[in-house]
């Protein structure tokens, strides 16, 4: 689940209030679709239940004054998620983008992520290539379509990784 992982990743930078988390998320990944405040709290609640975050109590605090911090389990959950390649399919951008940014935020290597994803993509592309080279015209057209999209994904990922790395210092700062 992407939003959960995103919030976890943001928390790796340090404990934060729910409202601050929404703001960080919107700044980095929200684009024109900001996260609903309610979704933040329901997600945090689920993470809390799963033991991935914990609440740092502040004296005399209301529910909106609760500060959340990531647990050790949460940290490894993020790492596992980052290392897990996405199943290659069209229109992965938002997920991959989130991963790249979070990888940088959490100090993971964006190149690793890229390489992992490329391996996964290539695995599928090899199948498609084999099918295309042996199939009939319809197969060829369909496979080509998929191949070009997968290639576009990978290239976009490469470019993004390179760009984001250039901005890494800025993002971390």
């Amino acid at each position: 689940m992407t939003v959960g992982h995103a919030l976890l990743g943001l928390l790796e930078g340090g404990p934060a209030h729910g409202y601050d988390l929404k703001r960080s998320y919107d700044e980095r990944f929200g684009q024109d679709r900001p996260l609903a405040y309610g979704q933040v709290y329901s997600t945090l609640a689920r993470l809390l239940k799963n033991g991935l975050v914990e609440v740092e109590a502040e004296p005399g605090a209301g529910p909106e004054r609760k500060k959340y911090a990531i647990t050790q389990a949460g940290v490894s959950d993020v790492a596992a998620w980052l290392a897990q390649p996405e199943k290659p399919e069209p229109y992965l951008q938002s997920t991959l983008y989130t991963k790249v940014v979070l990888a940088l935020l959490t100090g993971h290597d964006a190149d690793d992520l890229l390489d992992t994803q490329r391996a996964e993509h290539l695995r599928l592309m090899r199948d498609l290539t084999r099918r295309r080279d042996t199939g009939d015209l319809a197969d060829q057209l369909i496979c080509d379509h998929a191949l070009f999209h997968l290639e576009a994904d990978l290239r976009w990922l490469e470019v993004t990784a390179a760009r984001v790395q250039q901005l890494a210092a800025q993002v971390r700062g």
Binding site: D111, R118, M125, R126
Partner: peptide, 19 residues
């Protein structure tokens, strides 16, 4: 990548190291 898709296996070279 489309050319690499003809391969059986890939190795990635980065900064002179093979990953």
């Amino acid at each position: 990548p489309r050319v690499a898709a003809h391969s059986d296996r890939e190795a990635v070279v980065r900064d002179g190291r093979v990953r």
